[in-house]
Design a protein around this nucleic acid. Structure first.
Lengths: 336, 336
DNA sequence: ATGAAAGCGCTAACAT
DNA sequence: ATGTTAGCGCTTTCAT
């Protein structure tokens, strides 16, 4: 900036005024400064600018996802990016793979960089360590799952309601023995979806049988294996409810490999790509990652704009999409 | 930091030494400083630290993708993140949706933040504007497509070879009339894949007929529409080669909707999720986004470590995966 | 081994 | 309307 001032023959402060579009610079000097800026290909150092500025906003936010390459995470990411871009804010993204330590590390790195706010899909179960961020005014929004032991904004899917809806759909098609495949119960969404499953069964007067419930499943292979096991029972399920996109994929794969995809019903939580092209097409309770991301970003920026009202907990609706796999009736083996 | 120094009863510089693990601090003082740091929950401001530091490395890099939520982009992203994490580097990610202006904006924002390096899937076709980054020492690696009018490192897939391979596969199964669906020819990968298609046909003594070549397709619907049109020709193709993941999805969808998926062959460039579960399963020329991302990040960090050798252009191999749709022979309508 | 002073690139506060 | 000086939080340089 000093170079620009020298070339334009003005004081440093005048360049600063031009760069920040502050009033009180004559058109003539402004033109000279702009010419010097172009000539030197000058760009103001955003980090240095922030240092002295009151309020110290860096115009950056941090985003902690489960995995940037997971479809749910990356669509969320895109929605956050779009909202941030509208405000000239840049986003740091990171994956924590359900590792609480990694969550803390990432958030720590974000703090070191003095991000204005953080949107986090939490992996840990004690967010008291974040009280410091609250104190320093760093905005914080929890996404997909609420905070633990911390009163913070959150935006989540209607997990219980969606699972109830999905399982009721299977019940309505005559199923009474419905297997459940779920992720780590330490993940609140997994626990809530199981809760919805149980509630729907109870509502229909069906006993939830633990022998057809498999949790702590983390990937498609684990889900496929679980399905194999459950189908080998003396009294196997006639339908499955899978609590997560990867488990739905594994479940579909297992049914196909056993040639039973037209006989055993399946409804998955969270939509999967090409679900409509499979045979049968896969029925799902679809989440809305774009809406979640947008709502989270909007909430974050509202806080950054000074909103200090009590924590807001938004629940984004989910949608049952009936495509075929969830409409198979029990004993449809010969119906082909 | 001043607060920490005051609490520990030492000079500012001593705290700085402890924080940076510099030698020459007595164990006793170090302990006192660490206690103060914990007590105050202190974190060194990374931006301020960088300001005065020689070399001025911010330990951040920028990543320009086509779209963070696209599967190819997001897997690339993850590979870059993992490599960056190993070095304690944070990554800014952004989508430019094939918009050259957006590419410049994003890279400009990254420059403002003084990122150490940039990995970019280029949307523009003139990168002379980046000469400034070269001068200031910002490392630059082009991914998926090479730089234009700029001598810079690149990591790309074997587009021509992969397309040749895929089309030869269709030729080997008896096809002579093969439709081509491609993206904007201004995107080098799209142009190269078309080149591979043409070359394979020529190698087999088959004339490339422009009437079965459709380009400038940007999404699944456009691809589906193109397939409808081509199938309505008096002399329709018996097979299709789709030059991109979204076009493959659209192509598959169109064939299914017309009930001709067991009759018309299809090979796609770039793998798609659940391709193996479709009926027939979709044969593809698979790219390796993880390998591309890792290679790009490694190259970037090599440059940051001082490597000033001439620009390196890496070509990552692709793999033909035969799953069924590419092995359908012409006139298989009644073969069911 | 420890510390005081200068300065990184910029903005804030206060001149003129 | 323009410039001068201090200072953001830290590292560097140079004492002691």
């Amino acid at each position: 900036m000093l170079d620009v001032a020298a070339l334009a023959g003005v004081a440093l402060k005048t360049v600063s005024r031009v760069v920040n579009s502050e009033p009180g610079v004559s058109p003539e000097l402004e033109a000279r400064v702009r010419r010097a800026i172009d000539q030197l290909n000058y760009r103001r150092d955003a980090n240095a600018a922030t240092l002295r500025r009151l309020g110290r906003k860096t115009q950056t936010i941090g985003l902690v996802l489960e995995d940037v390459s997971n479809p749910f995470s990356s669509e969320l990411h895109r929605a956050v990016e779009d909202a941030a871009r509208e405000r000239g804010v840049l986003v740091f993204a990171g994956s924590c793979d359900e590792d609480p330590d990694r969550e803390r590390e990432l958030i720590g790195s974000f703090r070191d960089r003095r991000v204005d706010g953080i949107i986090v899909v939490p992996a840990s179960h004690d967010h008291t360590y974040l009280h410091e961020e609250r104190r320093t005014g760093t905005a914080l929004v929890f996404v997909d799952r609420p905070a633990s032991h911390l009163d913070a904004d959150s935006v989540v899917s209607d997990n219980v309601g969606g699972a109830v809806h999905g399982v009721e759909h299977l019940l309505a098609h005559g199923h009474r023995r419905i297997g459940f495949l779920g992720d780590l119960l330490s993940i609140s969404t997994a626990e809530e979806r199981l809760r919805g499953y149980t509630r729907a069964l109870e509502g229909a007067g069906v006993r939830a049988d633990e022998s057809v419930i498999r949790t702590e499943l983390r990937d498609p292979d684990a889900a496929a294996w679980a399905i194999e096991e459950l189908l080998a029972l003396r009294d196997p399920p006639t339908a499955f409810f899978t609590g997560q996109n990867l488990l739905t994929i594994g479940g579909v794969r297992a049914l196909h490999e056993n040639g039973r995809e037209r006989e055993i019903a399946l409804v998955g939580f969270d939509d999967i790509s090409l679900a409509d092209m499979l045979t049968p097409a896969v029925s799902v309770v679809a989440q809305n990652p774009q809406a979640i991301g947008r709502a989270a970003a909007d909430q974050l920026f509202r806080r950054l704009d000074g909103d200090t009202s009590p924590a807001v907990h938004q629940i984004i609706p989910v949608t049952l999409i009936a495509r075929g796999s969830g409409e198979i009736r029990p004993g449809s083996a010969e119906a082909r």
